[in-house]
Amino acid sequence: MTRQTKQETTCPMDALLRLLMGPWTTHILWILRQRGPLRFGVLKREVCGISSRMLTERLRTLEEAQIVFREYYPSVPPEVTYGLTRRGLELREVLDALDALARCWNTEDTNGESISQELSRSVTN
Rank of each mutant, 00 (worst) to 15 (best):
R3A: 14
Q4G: 13
K6G: 08
K6F: 14
K6W: 14
E8V: 12
E8H: 14
T9M: 04
T10A: 12
T10H: 15
C11K: 13
C11V: 11
P12R: 09
M13H: 02
M13R: 13
L17M: 10
L17G: 04
G22E: 03
P23M: 01
P23I: 10
P23N: 12
T25M: 11
H27D: 03
I28V: 15
I28Y: 01
L29G: 01
L29Y: 02
W30L: 12
W30G: 15
I31E: 04
I31S: 02
L32I: 06
Q34T: 07
R35E: 10
P37Q: 10
L38R: 08
G41Q: 15
G41V: 11
R45S: 14
C48N: 14
G49N: 00
I50S: 01
I50C: 13
S51F: 07
S51W: 04
S52T: 15
M54Y: 07
L55S: 13
L55D: 07
T56C: 13
T56N: 07
E57A: 12
R60E: 02
L62E: 05
E64V: 07
E64M: 12
A65D: 03
I67N: 01
I67D: 02
V68D: 05
F69C: 04
R70Y: 06
E71G: 06
E71V: 08
Y72I: 03
P74F: 06
P74T: 04
P78S: 06
P78C: 15
Y82L: 00
G83D: 02
L84I: 05
T85S: 10
R86M: 08
R86L: 10
R87D: 06
L89R: 07
E90N: 04
E90H: 10
R92T: 03
R92D: 11
E93P: 07
D96I: 03
A97T: 06
L98C: 09
D99G: 00
D99P: 00
L101V: 06
L101K: 10
R103E: 11
C104K: 13
C104W: 09
W105C: 15
W105N: 00
W105L: 14
N106L: 09
T107S: 14
T107A: 15
E108M: 13
D109T: 04
D109Q: 08
T110F: 11
T110S: 15
N111C: 07
N111I: 03
S116M: 14
E118F: 05
S122R: 14
S122G: 08
S122L: 14
V123Y: 08
V123N: 03
T124H: 08
N125D: 13
N125P: 01
N125W: 13
